Computed example of a mutant assay.
Amino acid sequence: MTQTVYILERLAAVIHQLVRADAAGHGLLPVHMQVLSFLAQANRYSDMPIAVADYLRITRGTVSQTLSLLERKGLISKKADPRHGKRIHLTLTADGAEVLAAGWAYRLDQALLASGSDAQSFADDLRSVLGTLQGLNGHQAFGQCRQCAHFLSGDAGHRCGLTGEALATDQTIKICREWAREKPGTASGAT
């Protein structure tokens, strides 16, 4: 094994410890922090319970219990989709966003900035490794909307080529469960 594998293993362990510590500090479990983090990044096609289950690769029962707890604690809110009867959208409340504000992801971001490395190049390399591992293991890839094969942009604004719906700019920088790998020769945006 290469030294990089060992470094990534240690980095994963440190991140896991940070997530556990953040969760404990708020009376939560690590899975609760992961759900909050996902919802902070999810676009309108992904802010649903089924997408949480797919993204975190956990059971629907675990998702249901987790969402109920987060809603009781006032960290998320649920809202029915006006166009699709049974569909529920999930959003972070101000308290939910505050839980994440100075958490592990913020500290990791600060460490990356302090490293002085080319952040975009590093992110591209990690995305490539992640996408390969997801493919080898049959995992669904999620990715940033504007890096999707379905993303369309023109004079009339942004659209999803899969659904045909218009996309607000803020939605195009979030992750989507409908994401598809871009055409060959372009950068992957998997998460």
Results as ranks from 00 to 15, higher is better:
R72A: 10
A94S: 01
F122C: 07
A42N: 02
K73Y: 10
L18N: 02
A111L: 14
A119T: 05
A97R: 14
M1Y: 02
A105F: 14
M1S: 08
C176K: 04
K174G: 01
V63R: 07
A97S: 15
D109H: 06
A102V: 13
E182C: 01
L108T: 10
R57T: 04
S117N: 13
R72W: 06
D124S: 03
K183N: 13
L75Q: 03
Y6L: 13
H32G: 07
I7S: 09
L133E: 14
T2W: 03
E98S: 13
A13F: 00
A94P: 00
E178C: 08
T186Y: 12
L112G: 10
S121P: 01
T191R: 01
A149D: 07
R57H: 06
A51C: 12
M1W: 03
H84L: 11
D54C: 05
H158W: 12
L8K: 05
A42W: 03
A141T: 01
F122M: 11
L36Y: 04
L75V: 02
L130E: 04
L29Y: 06
A21W: 12
I76W: 04
G25D: 09
L67K: 05
L56Y: 05
L92H: 04
Q144W: 09
Q171Y: 03
L113F: 13
L100T: 09
T169D: 15
G161R: 08
F142T: 02
G157K: 05
G157C: 02
H32E: 10
S64L: 11
Q41R: 14
L100H: 08
R83E: 07
R83F: 04
V19Y: 02
T59H: 09
R146V: 05
L108N: 07
I175T: 00
R83M: 02
L113M: 14
V14N: 03
K79C: 04
D170L: 12
E71P: 01
W104T: 12
M1D: 02
G131W: 04
R44Y: 04
A187K: 13
G185P: 12
M48I: 13
L28S: 12
V5D: 03
V14R: 10
A114I: 11
I50S: 14
A80E: 11
A123P: 01
R107C: 08
S46H: 01
G185L: 15
Q65P: 05
G27T: 04
R177Y: 00
W179A: 06
E71W: 03
C148L: 04
M48C: 12
E182P: 06
F151P: 02
L39V: 15
I76L: 09
A80Q: 13
A166M: 08
F38T: 00
H16A: 15
G138F: 03
D95K: 15
S153W: 07
D124P: 02
L152H: 14
P49W: 06
K79T: 06
K78W: 03
R44H: 09
K79L: 04
G189H: 05
H89Y: 08
Y106W: 15
R44P: 00
T91C: 01
Q65Y: 15
Q134E: 09
C148Q: 01
L28W: 13
C176T: 11
K86M: 09
H84T: 07
G74C: 01
H26K: 03
P184I: 06
C148Y: 00
